[in-house]
Design a protein around this nucleic acid. Structure first.
Length: 612
RNA sequence: GCCGAUGUAGCUCAAUAUGGUAGAGCAACGGUUUUGUAAACCGUCGGUUGUAGGUUCAAGUCCUAUCAUCGGCACCA
């Protein structure tokens, strides 16, 4: 299966608030609406104008592109004669404060297009001229604030003083009209709020979120390391590997008991395979390819071609379908250097991948089961999808229209039945079939695709796959690509942030620290530790010559779910005293070793619920 | 890949916006201490300042290239 390797677009989405609420942006005095969401929108949009105004004062040659409202703030794209520095940001902020103090009013005007063309032409606002040409109406709306005039649909606040609580956050490059062939503009991001408290709260939240960044926690908790010799390729350290293996095994077992078979497949293939699959034409730039004698070899970037070959390896009967092939093989994708990011966008990764070979009649049933499996899986982690997309037929689709319509209808039907909220992403399906993508947010609010379900009519044809149906006729199967975690690397990255590093007991790389009080308790601590290991519990014996306080603190920082502190009392009664992670002051009751083992095993007895 | 930023000991940071051959805490190691729920005490080790060039009497500080990372953008059939 081919999750979009890593991510969905991180392009900020302009809020659809106005559209959703059926509000015409040209209404006057919008800030007077009671709806706080509406006011926030107006404040942010106006803050973008004020920022542009400030830039115009400081850098008169500035050309302005677009300045929309986004989640938590706004940005403005500008073409400037020089690159902005962080000092510039401060200067712009200072200038904005002046403008706000001036308390200019926002004034709306309707201009006919020629007047607008003339005005923006005189001011060398090339991007605005281009935007005017894209507007259907005969007239365009203009907002004036002080001596700053902008082409803009609104809405705005009435006076600049209503935008007091803002902060500029960062500058970056951004392509005009999101096309890398166009000029790269400078985008300044900012945030704006109704009250000082809201602003401060937001800034605090950003700081807090950074503390659960998986790159920081991954290092601090000894889960994963990176090295510049292998950019984009995680090294799983013993603890990280434990998490990895636990997740991997859990999913493997989940699949196997739900009718999947598991396979292992080669790591690299001659280019012929990639030509057959279509990847040579469509995906080569993202693959690692090297010469081998008279041909070229490509490291696999996805498992599907292997599974096609496995299907083709035997004469298949309809009685075998659905054939569900699971594979957690290693994949390499040559992601562009600038795209790499911790565990969430890597070059080397594994997916909990599977390909389902089905008859047309089986599609719906299999999809239904898949959605339930995905739902049940994420439920165990207490994770919510921030978005679910149903991506439909693109313009350059392959195959028959009727097949597409049926497939899209099936997907939509089952996703509704599963009671999953989703949005339709029209035209964003793969050329080989429609798909459902599941999106999760990281700590910093960035969105990543994890699970995916994709229908594929194309690969079976390209590989000339056949099965024999009940009438002894050859039929072409349909393939469903699917992954529930998606990339395990990315999933773990998101999980680390979700739990802020404090994994639940079943997943914690180390489940128990056994801590002795003094040298008189060494032997008993070792005994307890040994019993825990024998019971299959991931125990660590901490008998360093350090104070109990020190060792407790260490366990806390390592986010170990349980610590056993053993002293005279425990030795005497052959018990353990349990201290849970983040436990408030005060000591728990002592319990027997066996009781503790039973408790922890019960707690770690977690599994994904089977469909049906 | 593009725009920008960053790179000093294992980690977190210092080293006067105006160059004068690197300091601290934690960790590690050695010793003392034998500890009852978030850091006992003393000592020791540890750095060709990402890499390669250049400017200079002198470079962590300036310049160039390069690598990696970070923030975005683009990409993610």
């Amino acid at each position: 299966m081919e999750t979009k390797s890593p991510a969905t677009s991180n392009q900020p989405q302009a809020t659809s608030y106005l559209k959703e609420n059926g509000i015409r942006p040209m209404d006057e005095n919008l800030i007077d609406r009671e709806d706080p969401q509406y006011q926030l929108h107006s404040i942010r949009h106006s803050a973008a104008h004020i920022m542009a105004h400030a830039v115009q004062r400081l850098i008169p040659e500035a050309k302005f592109a677009i300045g929309p409202v986004i989640k938590d703030g706004f940005y403005y794209d500008m073409d400037l004669p020089r690159t902005l520095t962080s000092e510039d940001l401060e200067a712009i902020e200072a200038e904005m404060k002046k403008i706000i103090k001036e308390n200019n009013s926002f004034e709306r005007q309707e201009w006919d297009k020629d007047k607008a063309r003339e005005f923006f032409g005189e001011h060398h606002q090339d991007y605005k001229l281009e935007l005017i040409e894209g507007i259907q109406d005969e007239t365009v709306s203009i907002y004036k604030e002080g001596d700053f005039t902008d082409l803009c649909a609104g809405p705005h606040v009435r006076y600049t003083k209503q935008c007091k609580h803002f902060k500029l956050l960062k500058v970056s490059g951004a392509y005009w009209r999101a096309d890398e062939n166009n000029a790269q503009l400078q985008r300044v991001y900012g945030t704006a709020w109704q009250t000082k408290e809201d602003l401060e709260k937001y800034l605090f939240q950003i700081e807090e979120a950074a503390k659960r960044d998986h790159r920081k926690l991954g290092r601090e908790l000894g889960l994963v390391m990176f090295h510049e010799y292998a950019p984009g390729a995680p090294f799983w350290l013993p603890k990280g590997q434990t998490v990895f293996r636990t997740l991997s095994d859990k999913m493997r077992n989940y699949n196997l008991r739900n009718g999947y078979v598991e396979v292992g497949t080669p790591q690299m293939f001659r280019k012929d395979l990639w030509e057959t699959s279509g990847h040579w034409d469509h995906y080569r730039d993202n693959m690692f390819i090297f010469d081998d004698e008279d041909t070229q070899i490509g490291l696999k970037a996805m498992n599907c071609p292997s599974h096609m070959l496995i299907f083709k390896n035997e004469r298949r009967s309809y009685r075998e379908l659905p054939l569900r092939i699971h594979d957690q093989g290693v994949l390499h994708r040559n992601e562009k250097s600038g795209a790499l990011s911790g565990l969430t966008r890597v070059r080397k990764f594994c997916q909990d991948d599977a390909h389902l070979f089905v008859t047309p009649e089986q599609i719906e049933h299999e999809l239904r089961k898949l959605l339930i499996m995905a739902k049940n899986t994420y439920e165990v982690f207490g994770m919510k999808f921030s978005k679910v997309y149903l991506s439909t037929r693109p313009e350059d689709y392959m195959g028959e229209l009727e097949m597409w319509n049926q497939a899209e209808a099936s997907l939509e039907k089952v996703i509704k039945e599963a009671d999953i909220r989703f949005e339709i992403n029209a035209g964003d399906g793969a050329f080989y079939g429609p798909k459902i993508d599941f999106i999760i947010e990281d700590a910093l609010g960035r969105e990543w695709q994890t699970a995916t379900v994709q229908l594929d009519f194309q690969l079976p044809v390209r590989f000339d796959l056949k099965y024999i149906d009940a009438n002894n006729e050859f039929k072409t199967p349909i393939v469903i690509h699917r992954a529930i975690y998606g990339s395990l690397e990315r999933f773990i990255g998101v999980l680390i942030e979700h739990y802020a590093g404090a994994f639940p007991t079943w997943l914690a790389p180390v489940q128990v620290h056994v801590i002795n009080l003094g040298e008189n308790h060494l032997e008993y601590a070792a005994h307890v530790h040994k019993k825990l290991l024998a019971a299959g519990i991931r125990s660590h014996l901490d008998v360093r010559n350090e104070s109990v306080n020190y060792k407790i603190r260490d366990g806390e920082l390592q986010k170990v779910p349980m610590m056993l502190v053993l002293g005279d009392r425990e030795v005497e009664n052959q018990t353990v005293t349990v201290r849970r992670l983040h436990q408030a002051k005060g000591r728990s009751e002592a319990i027997s070793i066996d009781e503790f083992i039973a408790n922890i095993k019960a707690e770690a007895d977690i599994d994904f619920a089977d469909p049906e």
